[in-house]
Design a protein around this nucleic acid. Sequence first.
RNA 1: CCGGGCGUGGCGGAAUUGGCAGACGCAGCGGACUUAAAAUCCGCAGGGAAUUUAAACGCCCGUGCGGGUUCGAGUCCCGCCGCCCGGACCA
Length: 974
Amino acid sequence: MAYNFTAIEKKWQKHWLEHKSFRALDPADAGDMPKAYVLDMFPYPSGAGLHVGHPEGYTATDIVSRYLRMTGHNVLHPMGWDAFGLPAEQYAIKNNVHPAETTRRNIANFRKQIQSLGLSYDWDREVDTTDVTYYRWTQWIFLQIYNSYFDPVLKKAQPITQLIHQLENENLVVTPDGGVALNPQQEGMEAIAGQAPLVRLWHELSPPERRAIIDGQRLAFTDEVPVNWCPGLGTVLANEEVIDGKSDVGGFAVEKRPLRQWMLRITSYAERLIDDLDQLQWPESLKEMQRNWIGRSVGAEVDFDVAGAQASAGDDDAVITVFTTRPDTLYGATYMVLAPEHPLVDRLTTDAQRPAVAEYRQAATNKSERDRMADAKDKSGVFTGAYAINPINDEKIPVWIADYVLMGYGTGAIMAVPAHDERDFDFARKFGLEIRPVVKPAKSASALNTGDSAEATPERPFVDEGIAINSPVIDGLPTRAAKERIIEDLEREGTGKRCVKYKLRDWLFSRQRYWGEPFPILLDSEGNHYALPESDLPLSLPEMADFKPTGTPEPPLSKVKDWINYTSNASPTLADGAYTRETNTMPQWAGSCWYYLRYIDPKNSEQFVDPAKEKYWMPVDLYVGGVEHAVLHLLYARFWHKLLFDLGHVSTPEPFKRLVNQGLILGEMEYHFFEKSNQPISAVEFADIDEEATEQGVRMYGIHKSTGEKIYATRVDELLVEKKGDRHVLKANNAIAVDARSFKMSKSRGNVVNPDAIVENYGADAFRLYEMYMGPLEAQKPWSTRDIVGMTRFLNAVWRNFVGDEESGKQAKLEATPIPEALDRMLHKTIRKVGEDIAGLRFNTAIAELIKLNNEITGIEHVPHTLASTFTLLLAPFAPHIAEELWQRLGHSNSLARHPWPSFDPSKLVETSFELAVQVNGKVRDRITVDAEAKEQEIFTVAKAAAGVRPWMEGKTVKSKRYVPRRLVNFVVD
RNA sequence: CCGGGCGUGGCGGAAUUGGCAGACGCAGCGGACUUAAAAUCCGCAGGGAAUUUAAACGCCCGUGCGGGUUCGAGUCCCGCCGCCCGGACCA
């Protein structure tokens, strides 16, 4: 009979909660214990409840936390809820309940489910992003952002008051485009004579002008920009939330439309967000994803004058600035392309070309982002009639507009070098423009990092680096040097400059939805915005019965008339008078940008976190979560953290020192075969096997390789399948290969595994062990319910060994005897291995080691008490409930949660003798057992004499011999 | 198309980082206990050929495929094939 896991698990869960067993100590109480901050990505408490993917990461961090507590660390291991956001609201609307109500219910359910897994969280530190005592500080942080600007010299955020001060004392001046720059007079550049001073001084500006300048510098600012408007969700979305032109949540169509929105200036941090990745212990793939998303390209901006009539006299703005990463190909620029939306297009276009240009621009506007991407292969465009002058050789080149150039990247204009750029090449071919090679492949490919060795021809561009040709100034120079030379020349002539561009866009921060943090912002009658006085925080989300989106960009909160209005009276920071509130709300990601800081000091009503506590606990030592947050949560949180760091509110430049992505858990393995008119067809004849939603649910299909026909597949039971060679085939007909794979778990597929059911049937301990035993934490792996029984058997065996079999009444015989030598050596090896594996997050091999040791213990009649106790401690991080129960039954009075972790004795690990493999020419021919003290020569003698070795050595001469200590001997003979 | 990762028994996966491939678990097979079954315990288990009444030992092949380096390669190098993830008209 199995041990009663249900009763034991309930008992200890209650014990831990009541005794607050996992309370993290504040720094003042921690003495000299080293700290460890072990963090899970907190869940979004959906109505569907926990998924088997959640406990994977949670169990991993739990094992680490429990291990660290037993090794004397002060461990902060908290859990909370990321509860604002679209899904809750969508669900609430559909089911006609208030999102606060569903959120409350979902959190209660999640908490219950998580607690049933025996995870060692400090529940006194639970946070909920929708709790007003939490989001009050989200609002406070927003005000910090609002009241800051990015100092380009210091490369960090500074209070906006400092900017105003610098403008007032005229260290800074206002540039013609409304930006801010160092005062050239202060810079000692007054001597540049004759130049009309285009910059203006602070005292020359009117109050509205001053306000515009300041608001234009804030790190939280409003801007009218083309945004991702999603009618299906009734809100705008950030770039990161749009995948292939559809909303990440729900998959609704997204269109571009210009709207006035709150933005966060994350682009100011692009450089630091990329550079600081180097100091993080994160998976390389994840760092690479962030680098790609931020998208740094180094190159030059080059000014092209517009030629001829269009550049009318005195019109010094008739300059087209392009961005290029290949300034070395400037001589190969045979035409230019502007984005259709480029502001200069109107002025450049000749009368003759005006109708064609207007038509093209109209068509481009109507095209969705999706269509534009879909048409990528077939280039389109129109000649403007204008020409530009290439500054390097004064050549006149035509100016086109085309939608393959995007207004949102670089300067919205390019110099086209068709010989060395695929897109320019396609375009030039289509419209018969000149293709002029100016780079040739380097002769020795190793000298330069180029893989391509074929020159550019009229049939094919050459896009790699190489040697400059047909380029007077730089002929013969390799690409890197050529770039440098051109940039120097351009800078000297004043026609260009070195420049770094980022793909990253500013973070669109407002949403037209109800279920989010209200902005602590007030608007006056002219639409100017002001910070809500801090004394008015928190700004609570008003109760609303009808919180549905309005269907227009007008947010739902605009319907709450008595909430909107605000009257200021004797505020130190705000002029008296009537204001209205900002009615947008913050996006889902706001709350998760700083929750890890709130855990440190969750009840503080004076500050978002106590600085002393923050300094003690930060940074997070281990952060585990899914890779889906690579460019959303993890980028946003790093941004906020750096900003708070700049303003002196936190002590570290990065929040998460070490991060691990847990791998996706897939559904059970499935087998499918194809058939047409009841005739089975082998799966090898199909390509592009995929699945799609149909009326009969999700179905798998394949495209027949020769006929191109799309055929649906039928699921077939595992028992009817066998493996032949390298493919799975039907047992009944081995000619028919079947498709074998496991799919992502999804409701529509019906292959979701419910953790509650697993806990009920197998217990939390077996569930935890199974999740960790499936494979490496980071690996994607298929679920297999059948396999859990292995862990149940293991736990039952441990129970029998240390307690006994309650059904047969057979008691385990525990005795105060010393541990037999061989077993003792194994025990010490296990102690070492389990400790090392936990630290390296290799839980699967740690568990295998425990199973091995337990299998050995099964073989002995009388179990030494110390062996049982030590084993129990080693098991505790993995299967804490049964471990606590065993610990108690072994006669220990206290919980083992903070009992010192067993230490191993290195001298016990030394074996007195060991087995060596004896190889001849690399093949094992025999094995010998030698004494640990044996000398190399003795070992060779014994090895040579081994029975299995002699036949292979006879008549041969030994050319060399090798001894790898403790492993093998190898004789090389001819 | 570009970037990152992976490929080991029927399945999940080990392999001290260049040193006895397949630890451990599942599924399977044989045996013990049992009236029987479950549970439990003990044992066998990558493939192959040949020998043999049969088995063991021994032998050969084997980590996606082809080559290379090395006394020795799952591990390192080169070239393919396949799968997964991410990005993609980013100038």
